[in-house]
């Protein structure tokens, strides 16, 4: 009977497995295979070049600019969407704020519901030196803003987009952390209070260990999202000025679909896959450690 059930279960799993294999795993291997060739979408030639595309990748200056920018996105995202969100979530969960929590929760969450294009275009206008409000505000408080062009200067473009991204998504992780914090048994806090623990001690000794898994998952989601960063950059600067705010994903897109160098684009794509795959493995490892 048990054997029969197992067979039925396997039968039910088959379509999903087939879908995952066809849609996910097969393209990964096709991508790896294609990255060993020099080819374009328009061209009929398909020349085997071995690892030449990978050698080119590691010699390409723009690749390192993109990698650095992805790192900026990652660090900023971890600081704000994990550290900052955790702080906001625990403050909102504090007794004195419980009554107004709904209001703040909604305020923080709304930006994450907006379309990236809407946010991007709005931010573009806000930070524009000629029609925006940031530069006049800086002038008001006595800062000379004549040389400040947040999205137009190479030195500030990436940080500005990263800041926009934090504004949009902090509220989302705040909600996830609030849900996790609410699942912590109240008795733990009561016992700690009886033992004389303060708010900070309760946060580090109860809240943090109890929501460790949520933190872990959010961190992984945030980091992999930062590595795949594309849409915000595309809408605001399109990787410019020059290639100053390029990320791996925008560069991959341009190489593939604008420059029509699909082999090289496949190599970039495989690099992104490897990085996100390693992070995924680390996540699974961390889970195992946690289980032990």
């Amino acid at each position: 009977m048990r054997k029969r059930n197992q067979k039925t279960a396997a039968l039910y799993l088959l379509p999903a497995m087939l879908m995952v294999i066809v849609i996910l795993y097969v393209p990964i291997f096709i991508n790896l295979y294609e990255s060993l060739f020099k080819w374009g979408t328009m061209s009929t030639s398909h020349k085997f070049v071995g690892i030449e595309n990978y050698i080119r990748l590691f010699k390409d200056e723009i690749f390192y600019v993109a990698l650095k920018n992805n790192l900026i996105f990652t660090v900023m995202s971890v600081i704000f969407q994990i550290g900052g969100s955790l702080l906001i979530a625990s403050v909102l969960e504090a007794k004195f704020l419980r009554k107004s929590q709904n209001f703040f929760r909604t305020i923080y969450f709304i930006p994450s519901l907006l379309m990236v294009t809407v946010v991007g275009i709005t931010f573009k206008m806000i930070v524009s030196p000629s029609i925006g409000i940031i530069n006049p505000m800086l002038e008001l408080i006595g800062i000379d803003a004549s040389a400040i062009d947040l999205l137009g200067n190479a030195s500030s473009a990436t940080m500005t987009i990263a800041a926009m991204s934090q504004w949009q998504y902090v509220g989302y992780t705040v909600i996830l952390f609030i849900v996790a914090i609410q699942n912590i048994p109240a008795e733990l806090y009561e016992a700690a209070e009886i033992d004389g623990a303060g708010a900070v001690r309760k946060f580090f000794s109860i809240t943090l260990p109890q929501i460790k898994n949520t933190i872990l998952i959010n961190t992984i989601i945030t980091i992999t999202g930062a590595i795949r960063e594309y849409d915000e950059v595309f809408v605001t600067t399109n990787g410019g000025p020059g290639h100053a705010s390029e990320t791996l994903a925008t560069y991959l897109y341009k190489v593939g679909f604008r420059n029509d160098q699909m082999g090289y684009a496949s190599a970039i794509a495989f690099f992104i896959f490897i990085v996100t795959f390693i992070i995924g493995l680390m996540q699974m490892k961390a889970y195992e450690l946690d289980e032990k």
Binding site: G239, G240, P241, G242, R258, N259, D260
Partner: peptide
């Protein structure tokens, strides 16, 4: 397109 994109991206950097 490859040459055009090099021209465009670098000219933008030229303005910077």
């Amino acid at each position: 397109a490859n040459v055009a994109n090099a021209y465009m991206a670098n000219a933008q950097e030229g303005l910077d």
